[in-house]
Design a protein around this nucleic acid. Structure first.
Lengths: 228, 228
DNA sequence: CGACGGCTTGATCCGAGTCAATCCTGGTGG
DNA sequence: CCACCAGGATTGACTCGGATCAAGCCGTCG
């Protein structure tokens, strides 16, 4: 089950740069462009499993990925959502701490960790960029601990929406690739509470829900007020 | 207020290695030994503040440190406790994401980040070790998200006790350097719930409380069962 | 001895969870 | 084109775990 993860999903795609590629890429993104193979993962398929060997690094090209941990009885905590451009799976230890799954049909660039690490040993800029990305993930995790430990349902949902809007560079309308269950497991709530809180925010005219996976932010100010 | 943090607390101590120092030190610990100055921080004094410039890296020599974040209304989330040997403040960004305070009178080795980073650029092993420590912190944060998002009070306290025992290499008796309030803010509970849960575990004969800061683990098995 | 800070305990409350129906909505087949 | 279906989302009624509010208790230190 070790090396199967990557191979299992589908054939690698031709390695062409995205049409409107930024000129200045970070060292890590450059390394992905050079050494990574794009792989397609179908909706809800595993990218890697918890306690599998951490043999690869990953960068989302299109789609979305969730990392999570489950307890024996099925309780699940999603650690983060990864959107196009985001890097994940930067483990320093032997194996992965979380599992990762595609939320929707996705293309993920997969680079062999040993290759990247070998280059980093001779390329200080790359080493620094790997560190920067890892530390960035740590920072987000710390923010999320504050949310999980101390914020109420309304604050959690508001934070989540603002964060998604920021990451999608959305002016008004946020597209949610994930289900209510995913949001619930990310925010440490139940699906019912997420749903209720969204309608509640709609009643307050802070947001609008044209469809269940699309949110229009009508009043960022009132969401921000909740955010803390 | 930038450089004051370190200077404010007290005079550096003579730089002598701990009496029973392990022979094989990691690259980062070696760098601390070489480039770090031991500084004393009194109980409840700030090591660094949130959004202060991240100018130094830190390693606990003796005592204990907490990192945390507070909301405007005073709600606080402690991200981690650091015990002797632990490294903290490994920020890649401009400034700190959390604040850090000494829990008890502590000695902390302080090394200038620019110095360490400059060495890391020429020393791949050091760069790798910095990365490893950062990724380790990320991993612990992810574990903690599961606790905060999905575990009940009893499971949280049990996890905490087992974790402290492991870190102190305690056979039976765990010494808690931190107050109930600290534990509560770490576990996302209130001080009352922490206290009640401890007495509850004592009633179940899973633990004993010879004093409020000292816990004897009578049945690791039953704690483990709660841990998940 | 008194006072203070940290901890525990009790009584009550309330926000989110649980359980249980619906209600869409998008896809399928007739 | 429409009826039907399935899975995801919403809503309602009720419960309950942990928060809140309020005393006490205990140990340490002056």
């Amino acid at each position: 089950m070790q090396t199967q993860t990557v191979a299992a999903s589908t054939r690698p795609l031709p390695s062409r740069p995205a049409p409107t590629q930024k000129v200045t890429l970070g060292a890590l993104s450059s390394a992905f462009a050079l050494h990574g193979a794009p792989v397609r993962f179908a909706r809800n398929t595993e990218v890697y499993g918890e306690s599998e060997q951490a043999e690869y690094f990953y960068q989302v090209v299109s789609g979305a990925v969730r990392t999570y941990k489950v307890m024996q009885d099925g309780r699940r905590q999603i650690g983060a959502f990864y959107l196009p451009g985001d890097v994940f799976g930067l483990e320093a230890g032997e194996d992965h701490a979380f599992s990762a799954e595609a939320i929707v049909d996705s293309i993920v660039r997969v680079a062999r960790r040993s290759t990247i690490v070998a280059h980093a040993a001779r390329d200080g800029e790359l080493a620094a960029d790997i560190w920067t990305h890892t530390a960035g993930g740590f920072r987000l995790a710390q923010e999320h601990m504050l949310l999980l430990g101390r914020k109420n349902a309304e604050e959690r949902v508001a934070s989540f929406l603002l964060d998604m809007a920021r990451r999608e560079s959305a002016i008004e309308v946020v597209e949610l690739p994930m289900s209510r269950q995913d949001i619930a497991d990310y925010l440490g709530l139940t699906i019912e509470t997420v749903s209720r809180t969204l309608t509640q925010l709609e009643d307050k005219e802070a947001i609008e829900l044209p469809s269940s996976r699309r949110v229009r932010l009508r009043s960022r100010a009132s969401l921000q007020r909740l955010n803390g």
